[in-house]
Design a binder for these strands. Structure first.
Lengths: 212, 212
DNA sequence: GGTAGTTTTAGCCTGTGGGGCGAAAACCTC
DNA sequence: GAGGTTTTCGCCCCACAGGCTAAAACTACC
């Protein structure tokens, strides 16, 4: 489960209290019940840690099947990528914390690879889909959206280009409202929202590239 | 397992001889052994049907977990996409046949969705990767490659644009050889090969779009 | 109330790369 | 050699991302 917090892309992890990998950090998850789908299962286990109503997007990543991935017993895992908007801060239990994806602690099993795969999937989809709706609040200014992109992509993004691209693609629409400027002044920012809040793929594969 | 045969994208299916879905067609696969990965397993089961040395590319699609997907018992399945080059024609057993993806027979379980997902994945990746190497022979002319793209994408592709795009991206390289023209004459075609035969992602997401 | 500073927005210009078209090249057959 | 066929090359256009600069719209300070 990823979220942009304090201007950085962070991942929700909990600390294992049992072997194997005692003390290492782990992505939320657990065993599949007989009568549920994988998605229902991940939502159920996630609900033990956070309020899952905050989850704006959930998609399957990959199923890991290396016989040695769990040293104790044979175990398969299907990894999911979950996204939550920046403006929520769900309560989490004692053993659970947000960690910057750029500075991961020691992770249990193959969870490090999973988290990085989730980050990469997110980065790719920011370029050719409207996934950003799952990271952003309902209403936002372009510069706020820009900060989300910077945090998630890990490189600078021009607010000018971002606005033009997303408006031309019809991903964003203006709300007509504007944000009161802060103490330091400045032109009041126009507010926007995502036209749809379900995943849509842009037919143009054009991309916001890192600056040259 | 997909292959372009007779100018159409086709999929290898076998006909079930047992309930459930007796008589319906099914994608190759089977149960996972204790000490193998999913990829090893799919290769093993595929080997029952065809010579798997022909398989040029194999990638995971999705894990299906609907509790009702198998009416008899709870069963998960991880779908894989396999690609074979056009110039091979592996022997297949009696119960196994190639079917045009555009005209699928009645498929068992959720295999119809799996095959279509594989087709869509292939189509997407043809645009921003070099996957076509897995569909093409080692050496080919641009117009032969064009036919593969047409079959897989399901729409016209300009040989001119295809050549320019793939050469500029550095995906193709000329062999220096040329193909003798056929009976009907015509300028001899220059022959090309893929510069690398492992999956590579183009950093430009530009795409061969359907003609307007 | 004017000036300086800040933030956002709009306009312009450029470069890159895909798409289309037509002509040239290189072969065949008759 | 003429006409047909297939492939390749060159040219032009257009869409779009990217960068830069100026304008707009505000606050704060003198």
């Amino acid at each position: 489960m990823l979220q942009v917090r304090d201007g950085r892309l962070q991942v929700l992890l909990w600390q294992r209290a049992r072997e194997p990998f005692l003390g290492a950090w782990s992505a939320p998850g657990g065993y599949l019940e007989q009568d549920e789908t994988l998605e229902q299962s991940i939502r159920r286990h996630l609900a033990d840690k956070v309020d899952v109503r905050e989850l704006e997007h959930l998609e399957q990543l990959e199923t890991l099947s290396d016989p040695g991935r769990n040293p104790r017993e044979r175990e398969l895992a299907t990894a999911y990528l979950g996204l939550a908007p920046t403006d929520v801060d769900p309560a989490v239990p004692e053993d659970t914390r947000w960690h910057a994806v750029s500075r991961l602690p020691e992770l249990a099993f193959d969870h490090r690879a999973i988290v990085l795969a989730g980050r990469d999937r997110l980065r790719a989809k920011l370029s050719y889909t409207n996934v950003a709706f799952a990271l952003a609040p309902l209403v936002f200014s372009i510069s706020e959206l820009r900060e989300l992109y910077v945090a998630a992509l890990g490189h600078e993004v021009s607010a000018t280009n971002l606005q033009r691209v997303l408006l031309r693609r019809g991903v964003l629409e203006p709300t007509g409202e504007r944000r009161e400027p802060g103490r330091s002044g400045g032109r009041p920012a126009a507010l926007y929202r995502f036209r749809t809040r379900r995943l849509e793929i842009t037919d143009q594969f054009a991309v916001l590239r890192p600056p040259a």
